[in-house]
């Protein structure tokens, strides 16, 4: 049963990563690409983490994975914000 639930989470996570990658490659400008990328980072990684934590069957492992997810989410949000901000400012500079 746990295996099934964990597989569902991992498959959903991979789906998010796939969609994010397609978005990164296909979307027209920086902002929409960032939008696609952060969805993959945050939700995809979170779902993968839940799936792997269920496989691990250990509380310590689950907490560590949650911590990694939290750090990745914070770092990627800040990085995304900085890239978007830089792009916005350089576009204003060009006009």
């Amino acid at each position: 049963m746990t295996d099934w639930i964990s597989s569902m989470f991992i498959i959903a996570g991979v789906g998010f990563f796939l969609a994010g990658t397609v978005g990164l490659l296909r979307f027209p400008d920086v902002f929409t690409r960032l939008h696609a990328l952060t969805k993959a980072d945050n939700t995809g990684l979170g779902l993968l983490g839940v799936g792997v934590a269920l496989q691990g069957q250990s509380f310590r492992l689950a907490v560590l994975i949650a911590l990694i997810w939290f750090l990745a989410v914070t770092a990627s949000s800040i990085a995304c914000h900085l890239v978007a901000r830089h792009n916005l400012h350089s576009e204003e500079g060009e006009r």
Binding site: T74, H81, G93
Partner: peptide
Amino acid sequence: HGDTAVESPLMSVLAKVFTPI
């Protein structure tokens, strides 16, 4: 000089929350 990143309020989160970790 043209670097706008520093003015971002999130930079202090990076310095204060992230660096200790």
